[in-house]
Design a protein around this nucleic acid. Structure first.
Length: 809
DNA sequence: AGCACGCCGACT
DNA sequence: GTCGGCGTGCTC
């Protein structure tokens, strides 16, 4: 009985979304394990692709001849049993390709690069040989990519048997090594060597002593040079004489900011807990101990010490020999929070940032996989960290929409966390000051265990929030981003040497060029949205497709010169602020000023050192920052997000205002918040002012109930796109019929409608939103729809399914 | 995705 | 006749 391997291949299409059966060559039989990457032949010709072994079998229904596995790419599986099962579940619940899910869970260096090489295998005539190959015997196929004539010639030569196209899958995953050395001789032998030295060979004498001190060890050469005060040439001589051997030593690539770790014996002690915190830690600790997969909702007001609860809960998991995973939104994955975890747990911590290079990410991943890191902190994708023996999972700021990936596979880290919790019998803690309505409703129903931290650790009251109605302000003072009360308070802070944070809410806001004469708005030629001005590159850019063009001097429509910039960008606000308060030192933080690696940290450090009086930024400054000298927080435009056609608009506004208010008066100084708005009567703004989550929750719940939205209903969004608007609409109409026939009567189907941004990247988009409470047919029908998109009538139509969408636009 | 096969119109 | 365009179907 020959064992056969089942392999998921790297060909992300609907038709190939299944394991293929391969023979296992005898030489690989011993090595090959489930979860390893392999290279397999796939299709006709001699095409080769990367794949993952997902199982072994001894029989197959496949009638054709089985091909053998070409090569194994790993010594150890890169996907363990848990993550393999998770990848399958993920593909199933997010309607994505299995292979895409596998790659999503792994560092991207593990996605091999496939290359095609054209090789000359028979004599060609001089001219062709020179034209196509520059007189060499092989050439990269991609060199011909934008030359259709050459490709035609090549194909002809191939048919004639004169050239061959070879496939190469190259593994990009490489460990970094530095030169190290290890003594080859025993202590006595080294001593003998010393006797034969010249009397003036001081350096070699010292080398021998040093080697005697590291018998049996391998030391990085740079380190040895430093410690023995010897140069590399002395070590080279030692190697020549056979005293030592040079060996490559594997090292982990780690970003600069992470290198300065505290020594593990100087770790920070846990803080003293208040009774609420103690209760939370006790309950979570009990679940860790009993290995129950309970989901907790930890709701704590800003400054109530949630982080300390997380840290002590992690300690409990570690004390029981288990590992812990802590997710934070990318935006709050700041050095402040990361350093706090590192100060507590030292070298056991691995951090997964989006700003890591591929190599750094791969190395950090291997530290986890090898069990060297027991605590992982990271953003969304860190939920796939290969920790074994997982004892606790924490999602901080669980309401954040960035936990949902907005491209395929469209997974929600919260759901993956619950899956892993169940698999590992580990509790999951969802923490937030403003929980998502979904989570809070589940806590009310008893699906989640509800823990609360209603008191602030420093016993300071939450800062008073003043609402400024901008309508009379504008009438009185004309167009300005600054009301009189806000200016007054800013000046007060300046006089007292205190700092302020100003936030510009950019959600749903674009800064665009408009002609004052004809009203023409400069739009992207590929997408139906306006272009955004970027002063740093002096261009107009499309945020969706990346299209870029110069800033126009005259209106492209009516040729008027009165075309100008509209909208409130941070730059414009900064300019105005400098005019209004010339003495203030201002730091501006937005995508433009933080694009360069490390700029984010640098600007925050500057502000922390009081090298500026005002920090002006977008949403990115709303979270996680803790500066004791900040006593004023101003929100310039609270309501730009309220007008969006999105049922979560109010929730997002409430969250944002609550979060940013927490930035004022963190230490012993009393803080103050000023919110400028054109909707002073809106409940999201009034409830945020009153710090009243409860009132907001019930008000919003009743609206969701009336309109049949989550958490009362689940939602799924389907999208279809095509370069022709009619084709996209027709495809969606067909899908609608199919849904209508199969789904339960209680299920609500909205649409099809053109999407709010109807055209993107030269394609038209139509969508359907399904709202359902329970519909046993839904999952099956959605899969059938995906299958149907293979048929001729769906040619070139792209269909995507987004379960539990975060945005409906 | 990437390849071969096969059917049609335009050319040597 | 034959070359090469593109539509169609398959990949263990």
């Amino acid at each position: 009985m020959v064992e056969l391997a089942q392999v998921v291949v790297d060909v992300p299409t609907m038709q190939t979304n299944q394991p293929y059966t391969y023979q296992v060559p005898v030489i690989l039989e011993k090595k090959l394990q489930v979860g390893m990457r392999v290279v397999v032949p796939f299709g006709n010709g001699h095409r080769q692709v990367q794949g993952f072994v997902v199982g072994f079998t001894d029989s197959t229904d496949y009638a054709g001849k089985l091909k053998p596995i070409q090569a194994v790419m790993d010594l150890q599986p890169v996907v363990n049993q848990e993550l393999l099962a998770l990848s399958k579940w993920l593909a199933d619940t997010t309607y994505s390709f299995w292979i895409a899910c596998l790659y999503t869970m792994l560092p991207n260096l593990l996605k091999g690069k496939s290359k095609r090489i054209v090789r000359v295998i028979d004599d060609l005539d001089e001219q062709t040989y020179f034209d196509l190959f520059n007189g060499k015997d092989e050439r990269d196929y991609t060199d011909f990519a934008n030359n259709p004539d050459a490709i035609n010639q090549l194909l002809k030569l191939k048919r004639a048997g004169k050239v061959r196209i070879d496939y190469e899958v190259t593994d990009r995953a490489r460990a970094k090594t530095v030169m190290g050395l290890t003594p080859l001789l025993s202590f006595e032998e080294l001593e003998d060597a010393r006797t034969s030295l010249h009397a003036n060979a001081h350096a070699q004498n010292r080398l021998l002593s040093y080697l005697q001190s590291i018998i049996g060890k391998t030391v990085v050469q740079k380190e040895a040079e430093r410690r023995a005060q010897l140069s590399s040439s002395t070590f080279n001589q030692g190697a020549k004489k056979g005293w030592l051997k040079k060996v490559p030593v594997e090292v982990y690539r780690r970003p600069e900011s992470q290198v300065a770790l505290p020594d593990d014996h100087q770790l920070e002690k846990p803080l003293k807990l208040n009774p609420d915190q103690q209760e939370a830690v006790d309950q979570i600790g009990a679940a860790v101990k009993d290995q129950t997969a309970t989901t907790f909702l930890l709701q704590g007001v800003t400054g109530s010490g949630k982080t300390e609860v997380y840290l002590q809960s992690i300690s409990q998991a570690l004390a029981r020999g288990r590992t812990a995973l802590m997710l934070v939104p990318e935006i709050s994955l700041t050095p402040q929070i990361v350093n706090r975890v590192r100060r507590r747990f030292g070298s056991q911590v691995a951090v997964l940032h989006s700003s890591l290079s591929s190599g750094e990410r791969y190395d950090e991943w291997r530290r986890i996989e090898r069990g060297e890191a027991k605590v992982v902190v990271g953003a969304r994708s860190a939920i796939f960290a290969p920790l074994t023996n997982l004892g606790l999972i924490i999602l901080d700021e669980e309401h954040e929409s960035s936990y949902k990936q907005d491209e395929s596979p469209r997974y929600h880290a919260r759901e993956v966390a619950k899956w892993r919790g169940k698999y590992n019998n580990a509790p999951v803690v969802l923490g937030s000051a403003t929980p998502s309505l979904e989570s809070r409703a589940r806590a009310l129903k008893g699906v989640y265990r509800f823990l609360r931290l209603p008191h602030r650790v420093n016993k300071q009251p939450l800062p008073p929030i003043q609402i400024v109605d901008m309508r009379p302000e504008i009438k009185k003072r004309g167009e300005s981003n600054f009301s009189a009360p806000l200016l007054y308070e800013l000046n007060q802070r300046l006089a007292r040497g205190e700092q302020s944070i100003l936030m510009l809410n950019r959600r749903g806001f674009s800064s665009f060029m408009m002609c004052r004469d004809c009203g023409e708005v400069l739009k992207c030629p590929n997408c139906d949205i306006s272009l955004t001005l970027h002063m740093d590159t002096r261009t107009m850019k499309c945020h969706y497709c990346g299209h870029e063009e110069p800033i126009p001097q005259i209106c492209p429509h009516c040729h008027s010169r009165h075309i100008r910039y509209y909208g409130t960008g941070t730059e414009k606000v900064e300019t105005e602020l400098r005019q209004l308060i010339p003495t203030a030192r201002i730091i501006r933080m937005d995508v433009d000023t933080t694009r360069r690696k490390g700029m984010h940290e640098k600007l925050l450090r500057k502000f922390g050192n009081h090298e500026a009086d005002i920090l002006l930024g977008t949403q990115m400054i709303a979270k996680g920052l803790d500066f004791p000298n900040v006593t004023l927080v101003g929100v310039l435009n609270a309501d730009t997000g309220l007008g969006l056609p999105d049922f979560r608009a109010s929730e997002r506004t409430f969250d944002l205002l609550s979060q940013v208010s927490g930035r004022a008066g963190r230490a012993n100084k009393q803080g103050q918040v000023i919110i400028q708005t054109f909707n002073p009567g809106h409940y999201a703004i009034k409830d945020a002012q009153a710090h009243d989550y409860e009132r907001f929750f019930y008000q919003e719940m009743s609206l969701r109930h009336q309109a049949s939205y989550p958490p009362y209903y689940y939602t799924v969004r389907l999208m279809a796109s095509h370069p022709e608007e009619r084709t996209a609409a027709q495809a969606m109409a067909k899908i609608h019929d199919q849904l209508q026939k199969a789904l339960a009567p209680s299920t609500i189907i909205l649409g099809p409608t053109p999407r709010a941004i109807a055209r993107m990247k030269r394609r038209y988009y139509y969508q359907i939103v399904i709202k359902y409470k329970r519909d046993p047919a839904l999952h099956r029908v959605l899969f059938e729809i995906l299958q149907n998109t293979q048929s001729k009538s769906f040619k070139d139509v792209q269909v995507s399914i987004d379960p539990d969408p975060q945005y409906f636009m």
